[in-house]
């Protein structure tokens, strides 16, 4: 994952305007209101690595909703972060199918051997929980940035982290 640029009001405004225009295009007058909000938040996060507090009034102004409206939505969805994550994000599936295949052991190993607990960052890697990646026969599964991983176990995790460290240094 590339380094994300500093927040820039003009870039943000352009992203917001583009998503609003796209929503208008498709939904016509039904797009009045917050229709473009999720696409906007996704676009901002894709661009800046997070949806920073400075973006909230811009989004509210663009959509003509309140800042509170935006904050409410932003905080509802687990995908959105208000501060940038590390260079890499590992989302480890903790749902039942992966439980049945040993994901709890992998999580425990990440904590004990690598000091990584869900929500924590270490060595340019942020660990998060996720509940189902649709790879339920090949678990434990995880998403490293946008790459789906399968059949994780302790040694696979060790190799993965080592690889990230090497590519990062």
């Amino acid at each position: 994952m590339a380094d994300t640029p500093e927040f820039d009001v003009r870039v943000a405004d352009a992203l917001i305007a583009a998503e609003i225009a796209a929503a208008r295009d498709f939904y016509g007058e039904d797009a009045n209101g917050a229709t473009a909000l999720l696409p906007i938040l996704h676009a901002l996060q894709a661009r800046f690595g997070c949806v920073p507090a400075e973006a909230v009034p811009l989004v509210a102004e663009g959509l003509n909703v309140s800042r509170a409206d935006v904050r409410g939505v932003l905080s509802f969805y687990h995908d959105f972060r208000e501060a940038p994550a590390a260079r890499h994000v590992l989302k480890l599936c903790r749902a039942e199918a992966c439980q049945a295949r040993g994901c709890e052991r992998v999580a425990a190993h990440l904590a004990s051997a690598h000091g990584l607990r869900p929500g924590q960052t270490r060595d340019e890697l942020t660990l998060e929980n996720v509940y189902c990646l649709g790879n339920c026969t090949l678990g434990p599964a995880a998403l490293l940035d946008e790459r789906l991983l399968a059949n994780l176990d302790e040694s696979a995790v060790d190799a993965l982290i080592l690889g990230l460290k090497e590519s990062g240094s």
């Binding site: 909230v56 909703v65 409206d69 935006v70 904050r71 409410g72 905080s75 509802f76």
Partner: peptide
């Protein structure tokens, strides 16, 4: 009609907030 309030978070973490 001001929309100054919202709920932030979800589940048990749901909290009334001004978003400010």
């Amino acid at each position: 009609g001001t929309f100054a309030l919202t709920i932030t978070g979800r589940g048990l973490e749901s909290k009334v907030s001004t978003g400010s």
